[in-house]
Design a protein around this nucleic acid. Sequence first.
DNA 1: TATGACATGTAACTATTGTTACTTATTGCC
DNA 2: GGCAATAAGTAACAATAGTTACATGTCATA
Lengths: 208, 208
Amino acid sequence: MIQELIHNYSHLFEKELLNEINQVGTFKEVPEGDKLIEIGQYVRSMPLLVSGAVKILREDNDGDELLLYFLEKGDTCAMTLTCCLGQTKSEIRAIAETDAKLIMIPIEKMEEWSAKYKSWRNFVFESYHNRLNELLETIDSIAFLKMDERLLKYLNEKARISNDNIINSTHQEIAYELHTSRVVISRLLKKLENLGKVELHRNHIVLK
Amino acid sequence: MIQELIHNYSHLFEKELLNEINQVGTFKEVPEGDKLIEIGQYVRSMPLLVSGAVKILREDNDGDELLLYFLEKGDTCAMTLTCCLGQTKSEIRAIAETDAKLIMIPIEKMEEWSAKYKSWRNFVFESYHNRLNELLETIDSIAFLKMDERLLKYLNEKARISNDNIINSTHQEIAYELHTSRVVISRLLKKLENLGKVELHRNHIVLK
DNA sequence: TATGACATGTAACTATTGTTACTTATTGCC
DNA sequence: GGCAATAAGTAACAATAGTTACATGTCATA
């Protein structure tokens, strides 16, 4: 684990903290699609993302979903942070967007390290900051953009996350994440195709 | 200032920290409507809200607004926290919703107290937690509710905040905060009145 | 290759929200 | 009182998004 840790976090944490993480953290590999956190669940360890991407989802009363944002290498889940500290239930669902590697930190360490390491405090604060800003971005999209703009933004984000301009999603899957219907997505995608912005295929979309 | 401080924060902070706050904090009274923080502005002190309410707003590219949430007694602005720490610009606007009393803490103390006082760390973490949850609530409203439901929720929130079932807003003002048009609000309010849920008057609305 | 499951295309319609335009109060102020 | 500014009511229409229904295409596999 130590090499993954050093590669991704050595610029953030001092040596001593890296050693502690290496001692108490557990390494975890998860395949794409695996559920990391479920809504209503108590969280007992905090994930540091080493590689891959994780999507964070919110659910409405009918059980339908909405994508909030993606976590990437070097990120951690701010929701988890507070769940750990406050012993409250998760408000969100986390699913591996791609195959991912994580280091899981036991929650007992959170408080200890916050007192002991300035770099850890800064990391936690910065995580919160980033997550708040991501939620603001999400709010901007939902409140200020029309569905076709949201769709295009979503496709770009997916492409960026997977580092590939081919998006392996069905229209139905996209509709779920944007909290709309498959027909709406098909319609707007067709429009985007006519505008020359995408190329539509069965099970995948090419961003141009 | 010390009595306001003790009254609102003595259950959160230890005596020593309360003393420090009393020494370095400055007391501030702001009238309703006063702007506390502007978008793009650097923030040099952190507010602890002692009484009254503050509304937090987001702006779109056309300069139109959207209400994110309200801060109340005992709250602090999580956005400000990170702005202080990271020396980044504010992403939001803060305006006194009612007359309000604040204690302003110089940002230099943030880091110091985070190392020194567990209660301060917990306060900061909890603030982040609350703000994240409030943003999630906001997202739920925007993404999952129809405008009439959002309107009713907004009116209830306003009534709760001011502790008064009379809401002193014009349709135009409500429209701004919900990021829609005056005509839409007038239409929906009239519907709510026909359903017996509100009473409409010039410049104010009575929640029933 | 026949079949069923899944993915997509599309028409037709409804519902919701946004826009424009105009009217009718209400209020403060000269 | 007369006037201007502001607030609110409402009709008519446009734009966007959601829904239903059905047709067609693709693919794995029995």
